[in-house]
Amino acid sequence: MAISPVAETEYKGSAQPEQGQQPTLSVRDLVVEIPTRRGVLRPVDRVSYDLAPGEILGVVGESGAGKSMTGNAVIGLLDRPAHIAGGEILLNGKRIDNLSRRDMRKIRGKEIGMVFQDPLTSLNPLIPIGDQLAETIETHLNVSRTEARKRALASLEEVGIPAAAERLDSYPHEFSGGMRQRVVIALALCAEPSLVIADEPTTALDVSVQAQIIALLKRLCREHGTSVILVTHDMGVIAEAADRVAVMYAGKLVEIGPVRDVLTHPNHPYTDGLVGSMPAHSHGQARLRQIPGAMPRLNALPEGCAFHPRCPKAQEKCRHAPEPELMNGAACWFPVGEDA
């Protein structure tokens, strides 16, 4: 099975898309701010990336790194008082960050689908799943009730629900966790969106079911040409599913590039530490490599590069110079691969 050619060849460690081709999603210098009594926090700080049609972009980082916040900003679901304070978001060339709530609601579900971590909370427990699917299809595609139900059945069959016709009238609690997540994926894809944001879609699932869901997500997006932002903390899932990976730390994008390059030859010391600290990479050694310390809180970010207190390669420049910009795929003054 070939991955979409764009993802396979064109991206060489750069956050820029191929010339002339319009990206599905384009995030430019996105800033999200939360005003608090003790000052303004920036959970997302000048993040930029493009997403080609049919591409799966994995977003990794520790909790609090801003990965979910970026996704929520794109679909306009930031919880107040968090708000977009700068930059722009373009979906298929149209700006969507300044839309009214009402206009945004038309886009959400139709042009951007969502899959959340916990399938039980993203389905209405009081409505049969067939009705939930039909309602979404009816709202976004302007078709009749009977036609919507027919399409609902087709989409359930597509995500691999056995005996889909009989299960249209089942309630969410009658499904297992993996089947529920399949229903949520059907719900996200039923209006044929051009972008799906999957926020930790397999974190609540067991390993064997996780493999099924990842395979399903990959297959459907390839067939429909849907782009996916896959937010997860699991590097293994990223390696298996994503075409490119974006690594976030303390609200900033610190590294972005094709998944193979980033995982085998990380440029940013944080990515290097992250990959190295995985037990799968211990190669039988008694101790795991560890990154000392913890991610700084947003209200106590250090001067200079936010990673320098934990960085093994930190030098004077990292402590005082303004933080490094994203260059050649990594935001670091002294990338890992270079001096070696």
Partner: peptide, 24 residues
């Protein structure tokens, strides 16, 4: 064998492994 095959691996870029069948 199924569990080991299903676990995400770091070097399996874009490969589709044999997906386990059924549920618990």
């Amino acid at each position: 064998q199924m569990l080991l095959a299903a676990a995400p691996k770091l070097d399996s870029f874009g490969e589709t492994e044999a997906v386990p069948q059924g549920e618990i």
